[in-house]
Computed example of a mutant assay.
Amino acid sequence: MNKKILLLASIFVLAVVAIGSVSAFDLGSLTGGDEGTTVTIGGEEFTIPAGYEENTDLAEDDNVTEYSTFTSTLNEKVFEKGDDFIIIMVSEYDGTDVDDDLINFLHGESKKINDIEGFQQNDDTTFSFSYGKDNKVITVSATQEEVLNQIIA
């Protein structure tokens, strides 16, 4: 009888240890890990890929600029991962319509990313994609072109 109690106690201890090990194990590693973080910038949602950290020193919140015929409100966030970065700017316009001509004037050649039509401009170190949505110009810039596809949805 004492052997049965000892055996049951041992099984109980092993079960507790096993449950503790499983709960401490990162189950996300079985599914590919962290999928990123969702952020809201200027009322628009974006998913920032895993590993990027926000640099709050470079953020712009509701920065209003008045022009002769319209007003723009800029919201901007910067995310960094080593030497790589992501910059997302959302400019809302009051007093003028955001259209393809305005966006094209600001940035590049016509392109479609994830069913969103806009304009892309590249240089030696940065890929930028701009598009219009709800009288806003949204520009996503990154050091890695494939990151644009992850953010723009």
Rank of each mutant, 00 (worst) to 15 (best):
K3A: 08
I11K: 12
F12K: 05
F12H: 07
F12V: 14
V13W: 07
A18V: 13
V22S: 08
V22G: 06
S23L: 11
F25C: 04
G28F: 10
T31A: 15
T31N: 10
D34C: 06
T37S: 09
T38R: 07
V39Y: 02
I41R: 03
E44T: 15
F46V: 02
F46E: 00
P49I: 09
P49M: 12
A50H: 07
A50M: 04
G51V: 06
E53K: 09
E53T: 11
E54I: 07
T56P: 00
T56C: 01
D57E: 11
L58F: 15
E60V: 06
E60D: 13
D61A: 13
D61T: 15
F70P: 02
F70T: 00
T71D: 01
T71K: 04
S72Q: 11
S72V: 10
T73C: 00
N75A: 04
K77E: 03
V78K: 03
F79H: 00
K81S: 13
D83A: 07
D83P: 04
D84A: 09
F85Q: 06
I86E: 02
I88E: 00
V90L: 05
S91Y: 12
E92A: 14
D94K: 12
T96Y: 12
D100R: 06
D100I: 14
D100P: 08
L102R: 01
L106S: 13
H107W: 10
H107N: 15
G108L: 04
I113M: 10
I116V: 15
E117V: 10
G118H: 03
F119V: 02
Q120V: 15
Q120D: 13
Q121I: 05
Q121F: 10
D123L: 07
D123C: 07
D124A: 15
S130H: 05
Y131L: 04
K133S: 14
D134A: 11
D134Y: 08
D134C: 04
N135I: 03
V137M: 11
I138Q: 00
V140N: 03
V140M: 03
A142Q: 05
E145D: 12
L148H: 00
L148R: 00
N149K: 13
I152D: 02
A153G: 11
